[in-house]
């Protein structure tokens, strides 16, 4: 079945400095509904610029973006409609949180959609419960930890029930505990059928989590494919300053040493690899 992509970018060009250099330089991409897409690439490769274009904050000077097959409408009404469907969570939560009250902060987006105060209240309470914000809901935003701020910034968007959620490096500057928590929230989102676009430098997480990987280089899509296709292409990884995920490196090394059979399917996480090794152990017994 040939489904219309939920988001399509066609030959986008965007510049921050009057066309001297291009942050997006002929960027084309199609994203299907319900997919988990990881955007990877070196700093300055155009990930954040593309995300801002998706939400209508940046308007490409050339090329077209489509949402569900319709080109973006940059009128005030069109943008409001678009932003109710495409939510973006910024890398630095301090750039997103404007209120000192967690409750006020979360209620902002949904009230802008024209929902009644009663319904907004119900939705805010639900999202607070769902994202485990209750223990710190009465704290001012400036007293929250980095991880808590990130939780609130995700709640800000989730409460608006968008079809697409964009996360710009959600685990940036988080400790391992909060990274796990944010990853858990992201997994919940995908289970709810929301299309999630995420930029990350964590190749191990991307391999395990994503349905598709988009490699960006100098404002263009260098490669778009399944995690295993992308992460086995060492040439492309090198161009984008990325390393192969540890699990693939280890698998390759074990295959070279003859410990594992190279015909085995490539593992996407450590537990699969552990299973392969366990099997050898059981057979040898």
């Amino acid at each position: 079945m040939n489904e219309t992509p939920i988001l399509k970018a066609e030959n986008l060009y965007y510049t921050y400095d009057n066309e001297k250099s291009h942050s997006l330089n002929g960027f084309s991409l199609e994203i299907s509904q319900g997919k988990k897409v990881a955007f990877m690439g070196a700093n300055g490769s155009g990930k954040s610029t593309f995300f801002l274009c998706c939400n209508g904050i940046n308007r490409p000077y050339k090329g077209t973006l489509y949402y569900r097959g319709k080109p973006y409408d940059y009128s005030r009404k069109g943008l409001l409609e678009l932003r109710s469907k495409v939510g973006i969570i910024f890398q630095d939560p301090d750039s997103q949180l404007f209120s000192a009250s967690v409750y006020q902060e979360i209620s902002f987006g949904i009230l802008n959609l024209g929902v009644s105060a009663e319904e907004a209240q119900k939705e805010v309470e639900q999202v607070i419960e769902k994202l485990e914000i209750t223990p710190f809901r009465h704290k001012p935003t400036h007293a929250l930890s980095g991880g808590q701020k990130k939780q609130v910034s995700i709640a800000d968007i989730l409460v608006m029930h968008p079809d697409i959620i964009i996360l710009d490096e959600p685990a940036a500057a988080l400790d391992p505990k909060h990274t796990v928590l944010v990853n858990k929230i992201v997994n919940q989102l995908t289970q709810d059928g929301i299309t999630v676009l995420m930029s990350t430098h964590d190749v191990n997480y991307a391999l395990e989590w994503a349905d598709e990987i988009v490699l960006l280089h100098k404002g263009q899509v260098l490669m778009h494919g399944s995690p295993l296709d992308v992460f086995t292409n060492k040439e492309m990884l090198e161009q984008t300053n990325l390393e192969q995920p540890a699990v693939l490196q280890l698998f390759e090394s074990l295959c070279k040493k003859g410990i594992l059979d190279a015909s085995l399917p490539l593992p996407r996480n450590l537990s699969t690899l552990e299973g392969y090794i366990e099997n050898i152990h059981t057979i040898s017994k």
Partner: peptide, 16 residues
């Protein structure tokens, strides 16, 4: 930008 991304339309509507 972040407020615009959440459909800000000139008024800060929040619940108390």
């Amino acid at each position: 930008d972040a407020m615009e991304a959440r459909c800000y339309d000139g008024r800060l509507l929040v619940l108390d």
